[in-house]
Design a protein around this nucleic acid. Sequence first.
DNA 1: TCTGGGGTCCTAGGACCC
DNA 2: TCTGGGGTCCTAGGACCC
Length: 373
Amino acid sequence: MAWFLHVDMDAFFASVEQVMNPALKGKPVIVGGRNGRGVVTAASYEARKYGVHSAMPGFQAKKLCPHGIFLPNRRQVYSEFSDRVFAILEQYSPQVHALSIDEGVVDLTGTERLFGPPAKTARRILARIEKDLGLSASGGLSTSRVVAKIAATLAKPHGFIFVPPGSERAFLSPLPVESIPGIGPRTQKQLYQRGIKTVAALLRQPGLRDRYLDLEEPGSGTRNHDHSIGHETTLDAPLRDREKMEEVLWELVEEVGRRLRRAGCRARCITLKIRYRDFQTVTRSRTLSSPTCFDREIFAVARELLEKNVLAETAVRLLGVSASALVMAGWQDSMFEIEKRRSWERLYQGIDRLRDKYGAGAIGVRKSPPRAR
DNA sequence: TCTGGGGTCCTAGGACCC
DNA sequence: TCTGGGGTCCTAGGACCC
């Protein structure tokens, strides 16, 4: 029998901040959403009492919770804590799947002999996270991944729900359809309009059941993961000036290129994302004849897409660049290609090292993005 | 004082090939 | 010589998740 423990950290970013600074314990901590712009990325449970939640615009959070302690995002710190959480999970199974920075699935199948009954192991894992890191986690245990996830969400905060084999349907039936991952506000509305409000009602429709709730899950890892690496930014004020747009674009490209090289990848597809002042958003992409991880090549494509899609005097509020259809570097290269690129690679690695050490401004190319051709 | 930034997955049409 | 259909790639958009 397969066993999946879904682990979901409670108010992760805010909790990490409270661990780093115990004076914040028991206080309404709000990460992100400062200076009016931007949104909340995490709120401690003390802050949630006031109605603050993630994805909420900062000004709104401030209105609901004026005495809230607003902190800037510290991705690096959260990432380190995330590593420690996963290191604990990996002590209980070789099969741990990270779903995000604060969520993962531990495959406990076949661990009975070593650790005992899965439900006991699950509780032990959650306790370990709390004891070792001072962080609270919630868990769901089931023979189905989806059910485990739903159980973990329901268990929040600081809880654990075990759904014994055979009781999955009984567990799910009374829940509203939007409890199912993948059913967001749009789909929920459509289903409600058709009179389908509970999972029980959804399970009665074979088409919907197959699409949204695959309890059987035959093969694991059959999903095709088309990774992508992207970077985007919302401008301080809507931009009309083409030259300034290109400067922003160059900065985005540098970041994407750096991460691509760090991951040892090259991309065959470059996508430019543009959000206009009215929030209308478009993406424009181009596939290259040969994959690249070089700033100048990525920039040339991004700039071309910008030129084609932003008419003069159009105000733009967001620009984004992303690289997809990734291949591992060195894949299918002729010797000639390899030789040609080697010196470029050395140059870029040197630049990346300097930037890592002295900051992004260490190398002064950004003021004058190279023109294509 | 409007609405972040990182992603994945799915769909659908058109091009192109056989 | 005017006509089917399947497969794959590319592009774009949208829903969703954390």
